[in-house]
Design a protein around this nucleic acid. Structure first.
Length: 883
RNA sequence: AGGCGCGUAGCUCAGGGGGAGAGCGCUACCCUGACACGGUAGAAGUCGUUGGUUCAAAUCCAAUCGCGCCUACCA
């Protein structure tokens, strides 16, 4: 074995091995318990980022763990066709080739997208593999696949027939750059420094009129009214029922509506039903005309009069100029306000009147709320439940049509002759209404999230009644970031319940975001993105995964930096070397535990192993990945390496006889065997590599059995008394080392140590394990016995009931020793005074539970005894000095 | 505006009513036959602030300050 772990070749080798051996494959039918996860499908245009890395690592930990526990695991992989993003990518490519999609035409363009997808679409999948993802790749799905497309059609048609999908002219969010409608969710609001323009709308008789305030003066061209609050005293006495719209000189009505906020601006609101969602509602209430002045390209329409053809922002300037000239611009004040931007391209979106398709979500949402309320689906951590309810309760209809070409074309046809609308699975040949054969399909496609919403069952073959569905639906857990809780999770809940009559997943584990070192969100524009692949290249996948797992505490974002990963590379390397050491001695199989000849450290480490096994499985079961990972870290480094391996070295070198050696070897093998399995979900590559070198193993570690599931484990291995006993041995050793350190005695100097104690239990433990103490404390000799004559020139330390004398014939520095003891005494006195305060408190004695009181009393007695011993040691020094 | 979360060692964070913890960093010593990506020891914290509940509060409650995020139709 290499002196340091080199991940590159190991990772490549074992990943290929796993795939070749089909170790990731799920069984369609099996007697085993089913466990299933569908991957949140990354965009087909995507490049692996930290979010994916965390998300996939967690799912992989769960899947590998469940396999080790004997479950039939399905981890369903795939990608999402990402309508707008993918279309953008391909359009860019076309531009570079000096053409565009309109020149190509719809059919050719779609072909071009498929070509692109076939060429580049597996990039993200290959990157997931670098993370060690154990998805069943044979089942890989894509939202535009034929099967998934049939599912989409079926859902659309059924929802339409159930009146849960409708088409209509409504105000929607329009992105001029992407040239499509967006759902409300796809608009990101950002605070912007803008201006609030106060504009006078004169009365028809030319008198003062009403002053309105707006941040988008260009929309005034589409105004069809001015609204004031009916309770607003300022406007009670107005005689006129209308005003004149400046520039266009249209007469528009003054209406009253309680929506208007009297405290904002002048309390008068210009109403533009075609370009503002609220105005749209007001317009509907008052029957105002909807005048569209900005077209789908961001240019002014003919209704904008002389501004026709002008860009919307150019028009704003022109309108202001015109108003100024007419003396109708009263004032301009700076204002901070939220402006919506397209989540894909950051263009300022324009609320626009448009004919679109919508899903009526209320009825679907009710079932989705109920499913969480009655715990059919559990959201972890629980704090997200409220956010989920909140959103679900205030949900608005979902605009699902997109004016792009790449996606699932809406299965609706209009008869050119009679205008009849047909929604059907298959393209109809004649109009069922008038028999005409000139039917034209709707050109819009569906929102990508519409198909993602079906992911948990469409990937398993729905609408067919497949074995996969029977075995694996509903899925066990969905692992995702909170940023798509609404986009995706909520919608899957609605669709799953509606079409499968069951929740899509029993648990939703919502994990945190990965941020940069300073806690900022990683983004390309900020330039603070850390590329997971470069981290993997540099430190290895296992180190990276371990880092993610250790920092994945519930409810807190992860601040990622290379330095962190470096720390966990050290861990992987430490483990590698521990294994290297073990394997140097494990030259043959020692799978049978030799319980009779075990030493204390043998029994101790097995007990600790059992304990750690329980903690780790508990933690993974409840999605506390950080607890599981750090428990293993501590166990491997600070118990296995720091104590156990060091303690058994004399045995392994044969200094303690063949039987002891055999026992130690058997324990060593067992501990490595089990700890490899425990670690495998976190660091799959290095554990597989070592597994194959460890005697007594066969095949892949992926087929191993989790230690907690082995029968008789507890009775076979655990000796609970070994923990307190080993604690004493470790304390004695640490005590001696401590003196050595504080007295500045070089490690090369070996010492004589004498231990005095009245306590027979302690005495026997110490004498039974003196070889370990000698070895680990670096001693020349160690003697223990009942208190007797004190050695003269010795430094002392107190452990429990024992006084330890470290003989320092030539090197003792009494001043230093005195200082040391006094320092310790001061610490102890502090502790004692705290304990006394408690014990003097009658309420404490009366009300605190007995075991707590006992504990405090014990501690107090122990501290007193220790104090006594230190004081006498100090006196001894003084008397020696006086001699 | 409403909701959620977070303030614990220099840094990054665990913990969550009865002993303040880890990793990194720092200091000292050590290339001891797995590992210098290492070992041993050490220094370091009024657990944001103020009240309350309790025999007991870093932990529960209330308020307050600071930070972050999410949701919302303020023109």
């Amino acid at each position: 074995m290499e002196k340091s772990y080199e991940p590159k070749e190991v990772e490549k080798h074992w990943y290929e091995f796993w795939e070749k051996e089909e170790l990731f494959a799920a069984s369609e039918l099996s007697d085993k318990k089913s466990y299933s996860i569908v991957i949140p499908p990354p965009n087909v245009t995507g490049v692996l980022h930290m979010g994916h890395a965390l998300n996939v690592t967690m799912q992989d930990i769960l899947c590998r763990y469940r396999r080790l526990r004997g479950d039939n695991v399905l981890w369903m992989p795939g990608t999402d066709h990402a309508g707008i993003a993918t279309q953008n990518v391909v359009e860019k490519k076309l531009t570079a080739e000096n053409t565009n999609r309109h020149e190509l035409g719809r059919k050719k363009f779609i072909e071009a997208v498929w070509e692109w997808r076939n060429q580049y679409g597996s990039a993200i999948i290959n990157q997931l593999k670098r993370l060690g993802a154990s998805c069943d790749w044979k089942l890989e799905r894509f939202t535009m696949d034929e099967g998934l497309s049939i599912a989409v059609r079926k859902v659309f048609v059924q929802l339409y027939n159930e009146d849960l999908i409708y088409r209509g002219n409504y105000i929607i969010n329009w992105c001029h750059r992407c040239h499509t409608a967006l759902a409300d969710l796809e608009v990101e609001y950002e605070e912007i420094e803008g201006h609030l323009y106060h504009i006078r709308y004169p009365f028809p008789d030319g008198s003062d009129g009403i002053i309105v305030a707006t941040t988008r003066p260009e929309t005034m061209l589409g105004d069809s009214g001015v609204a004031v609050n009916p309770d607003d005293k300022r406007y009670q006495d107005i005689k006129s029922s209308s005003v004149i719209l400046p520039i266009l000189n249209r007469q528009i009505p003054i209406i009253t509506d309680t929506y208007v906020d009297m405290s904002f601006g002048t309390g008068a609101l210009k109403v533009t039903p075609a370009h503002d969602p609220n105005d749209f509602e007001i317009g509907k209430r008052h029957g105002l005309p909807e005048i569209k002045v900005i077209d789908d390209n961001g240019k002014m329409t003919s209704d904008a009069g002389k501004f026709e053809g002008l860009d919307r922002f150019e028009c704003r300037k022109a309108v202001i100029k015109a108003l100024k000239e007419d003396g109708l611009l009263i004032k301009v004040e700076p204002i901070k306000h939220n402006v919506g931007h397209c989540y894909r391209c950051k263009t300022i979106i324009e609320p626009n009147l448009s004919k679109q398709w919508f899903v009526k979500v209320k009825p679907l949402a009710e079932k989705a709320i109920e499913a969480v309320k009655n715990k059919s689906t559990r959201i972890v951590p629980e704090m997200w439940t409220n956010t989920y309810y909140d959103w679900m309760n205030n949900i608005r209809d979902w605009c699902i049509s997109r004016q792009i070409w790449w996606g699932h074309q809406i299965p609706a046809w209009t008869c050119e002759k009679c205008q009849n609308l047909v929604v059907a699975m298959e393209s109809p040949s004649i109009c069922p209404c008038c028999g005409s054969n000139s039917l034209v399909q709707e050109t819009d496609v569906l929102d990508t999230w519409f198909s993602s919403a079906l992911w948990p069952f469409s990937t398993m073959g729905w609408p067919e009644e497949t074995k996969l569905l029977k075995t694996f639906y509903p899925t066990s857990v969905l692992v995702t970031g909170f940023d798509i809780l609404f986009f995706w999770v909520a919608r899957m809940m609605m669709m799953g319940l509606h079409f499968m009559n069951d929740v899509p997943f029993k648990d939703v584990y919502v994990h945190a975001l990965v941020r940069d070192e300073d806690g900022k969100k990683m983004s390309k524009s900020k330039g603070n993105v850390i590329d997971p692949l470069s981290i993997i290249d540099k430190y290895g996948t296992d180190s990276f995964r371990m880092t993610l797992a250790v920092f994945a505490a519930q409810g807190r974002d992860i601040k990622m930096s290379e330095k962190r990963v470096e720390g966990y590379r050290h861990f992987v390397n430490k483990f590698w070397n521990a294994a290297r050491f073990a394997l140097m001695h494990l030259t043959e199989n020692h799978s049978e535990l030799k319980f009779e000849s075990m030493s204390l450290p043998d029994k101790w480490i097995l007990t600790r192993l059992k304990n750690v096994t329980d903690i780790v499985s508990d933690a993974i079961d409840s999605y506390r990945f950080n607890d599981a990972a750090s428990t293993l870290y501590k166990f491997v480094w600070h118990e296995l390496c720091d104590w156990y391996l060091e303690a058994i070295k004399p045995c392994l070198y044969g200094n303690k006889g063949e039987k002891k050696k055999e026992a130690a070897l058997s324990v060593l093998q067992r501990v490595f065997h089990d700890v490899l399995i425990l670690l495998h979900p976190f660091i799959p590559f290095v554990t597989e590599e070592i597994w194959h070198k460890l005697p007594g193993t066969e095949g892949s570690i992926m087929k191993a059995v989790f230690p907690a599931d082995v029968n008789d484990f507890e009775s076979l291995l655990c000796d609970l008394a070994s923990e307190p006993m080993m604690d004493i041995v470790m304390e004695v050793i640490t005590g001696i080392r401590n003196v050595r350190g504080e007295m500045n005695i070089a490690p090369s100097v070996s010492l004589h140590v004498i231990l005095h104690s009245d306590n027979d239990f302690l005495g026997s433990i110490v004498s039974n394990n003196e070889d370990i103490i000698i070895n680990l404390a670096g001693l020349k000799s160690f003697a223990s016995g009942k208190p007797g004559i004190r050695p003269k020139k010795a430094a002392t330390t107190v452990i429990g009931d024992a006084v330890i004398y470290i003989l320092l014939e030539d090197v003792i520095d009494f001043a230093k020793e005195k200082e040391r003891l006094e320092k310790e005494l001061a610490k102890l006195k502090n502790e004692i005074s705290g304990l006394i305060k408690k014990l003097n408190n009658e309420d404490f004695l009366k009300k605190a539970p007995d075991d707590v009181v006992e504990k405090v009393k014990d501690k107090h007695n122990l501290a007193l005894a220790k104090q006594q011993k230190i004081i006498s040691n100090l006196e001894k020094i003084k008397s020696i000095e006086e001699e």
